[in-house]
Computed example of a mutant assay.
Amino acid sequence: MAIPKAYLTSTKNLAALLDAIKTAQAPDTFNLRFLEGLGFPSSNDRLFVGVLQSLGFLNSDKKPTDRYFQFLDQTQSDIVLAEGIRDAYDDLFKVNTSANKLSKPDVINKFKTLSQGQYSESVLDKMGLTFCELVKLADFDAKPAPRDSPVIADEEPEPEVEKISDNRRPKLGLGGLHYNIQIIMPESRDPKVYDALFRSLKEHLL
């Protein structure tokens, strides 16, 4: 059953708590000391840690998750919060895809049905209050910006190859490098051998 057991007994500091997270450096562990350091020492505010876990902002060890860090991007915070609410209250959104628009009494009735009488009226009231106040701070209409999109580099243009006519061959060499080629001449008294050799050199190297 995807209905969080975590809830707040008072939501008066909920918006301020979320705003404080956005402007603070993420902790290694979101413990009570860190919460008090944000300026929320009340025992009611301690329940906020469990709510963050249910929203997927903290793992079971109370360490910030990827969603927590995504929430720190203030241009995406409300959208990320909406994603967390949809995941935390998955069964409720399966019953009503627009559950974020339900009134508090309707939410409580849905919780009562989904929990099959597991919770008291007092607890259901606080669960409904927590959900309704969370959705007020979230953006369910906007789509999240794509994350980790692959960057496609511009294709490099193919190098232009200069066509060389048969009567204009390139000289052997790379940039500023020049090569000295030594040729061991064969021993022969026939001048035709040397004529053929030099014709071949002229054809392939010059």
Rank of each mutant, 00 (worst) to 15 (best):
L18Q: 10
T113W: 02
Y89N: 05
L197A: 13
V51S: 10
F30N: 07
I183N: 05
D195P: 00
Q25M: 11
A16R: 15
P170V: 13
P27E: 11
A138D: 02
V161M: 11
F57C: 06
D19C: 01
V49A: 03
S98I: 03
T97K: 09
K202H: 12
F131A: 06
E187V: 12
E83G: 15
D190T: 12
A99V: 07
F131W: 07
L18A: 12
A2S: 07
E121R: 02
E36Q: 12
A2G: 01
K104G: 07
K104P: 05
E156S: 13
P64A: 09
P170Y: 10
G37T: 08
K22G: 03
R168N: 14
F48W: 04
A88N: 09
A153W: 00
V151L: 09
Q53L: 11
S188T: 15
L134G: 03
Q182W: 08
Y7S: 05
A88D: 08
Q116W: 00
K112G: 10
I152N: 05
K171Q: 14
G50S: 14
E158A: 09
A16K: 15
R199H: 05
V135T: 13
Y119E: 05
L55C: 03
I184K: 11
N180S: 10
A142C: 03
D91S: 12
K163W: 14
Y68S: 04
M185H: 11
T65K: 04
I21N: 03
Y89A: 04
S10W: 00
S122D: 11
E187G: 10
F93D: 09
G39M: 08
I21H: 06
L55H: 01
P4D: 04
L124P: 06
G56P: 04
D78F: 00
P159L: 14
S10C: 03
R168L: 14
E160K: 05
R86W: 00
P41L: 07
V193T: 14
S77Q: 02
N100I: 00
V193I: 15
P170H: 04
R86L: 07
H178V: 15
N31F: 04
A82S: 07
F48E: 02
N96D: 15
Q70C: 09
N13V: 08
K143P: 03
K101P: 01
L129P: 00
L81G: 05
S122T: 14
A88I: 03
L134P: 04
